[in-house]
């Protein structure tokens, strides 16, 4: 009786499979074809053109630097926030709610928020002028101040994207039974040892998910950079956008898109390998 119903599961997952195939798989294949073809024939021309561009190496360097700067800081902050909120009794939900507000803001809006703080006539300069630290408005976001620009973008990205890491970390921390920490405490582990030897290994799956998600998103950084730095700070997605819209060259834009996908996949594979989650060692 169960045998002649074996098609039901397939029927039930059919809509989602069809949806993904239509709106994800087909465009993906189209993009890949677009990237590796020229006038309807397979060709490396787009990739070559992409790599020959003056902004190519800069955008790769910037994207990687930004990811390297932002993701570890976000993870550290998220761990601190998660550990702190775990100790809070009343008002815990409210604190979490406030902390996750940046999640509800679109990345372009977040970029504009930080632009209003950091532009020449922004809040930051007004504050420094008011305190007498500066005598005249300083520029933070121009091409002449690449370090300040980098910091500004990194800070904005950290502000915007830490909440998602924290949400995953908090969920992971909630899964760790209190007794593990108490047992460690009884047997002589201090707070630091408990964190490194007990908590961190036990939230490995959450760490892995958070890092993969956050890193992939960091490689796709665009709107915040665009709002704060414009073309002064080229990143990979920004270049794809420019080739698509300014230069109207869909082939090179597609090549960038494929490159971003390859980098993201590679990062995911590295995380899966390095932060291996062994089901045997889970609670």
């Amino acid at each position: 009786m169960t045998n002649n119903r074996s098609w039901i599961p397939y029927l039930l997952i059919l809509p989602s499979v069809a949806f993904l195939a239509l709106l994800f798989l087909v465009p993906l294949l189209q993009t890949m074809w677009l990237a590796f073809s020229d006038n309807g024939l397979p060709s490396p021309a787009n990739a070559q053109r992409m790599m020959a561009d003056i902004n190519f190496s800069r955008s790769i360097r910037n994207t990687f630097l930004l990811t390297l700067a932002v993701v570890p800081v976000q993870l550290a902050i998220a761990l601190v926030m998660g550990t702190m909120v775990a100790k809070v009794g009343r008002g815990r939900e409210t604190i979490l709610w406030v902390w996750t507000i940046p999640l509800g803001i679109s990345d372009l809006a977040a970029g504009l928020v930080w632009l209003s703080i950091l532009q020449n006539s922004g809040y930051f300069n007004s504050l420094l002028l008011g305190l007498g630290i500066l005598e005249r408005q300083a520029s933070w976001l121009s091409y002449q101040t690449p370090v300040a620009l980098f910091f500004a973008i990194a800070v904005a990205e950290i502000w915007r994207g830490t909440a998602i890491v924290m949400v995953i970390i908090v969920a992971g921390l909630n899964q760790v039974p209190r007794e593990f920490k108490e047992a460690a405490e009884i047997f002589g582990a201090g707070p630091w040892t408990r964190f490194w030897r007990i908590t961190l290994p036990l939230i490995r799956p959450a760490l892995q998910s958070a890092l993969i998600l956050r890193t992939v998103l960091a490689f796709e950084v665009f709107a915040v950079v665009y709002a704060l730095g414009g073309r002064n700070f080229p990143v990979l997605v920004g270049e794809a956008y420019n080739w698509q819209n300014q230069n109207q060259n869909y082939g090179v834009a597609a090549a960038y898109a494929v490159l971003i996908m390859i980098i993201s996949l590679a990062a995911t594979l590295i995380y899966l390998k390095v932060i291996k989650v062994d089901p045997e060692r889970l609670p």
Binding site: E179, E182, E185
Partner: peptide, 20 residues
């Protein structure tokens, strides 16, 4: 005094044996 300075050991109801 913190637990570790009390010279005791404890066995928990749900074992609390470290899975990792």
């Amino acid at each position: 005094l913190p637990p570790k300075e009390r010279g005791l050991a404890m066995v928990f109801q749900n074992y609390a044996v470290f899975p990792h």
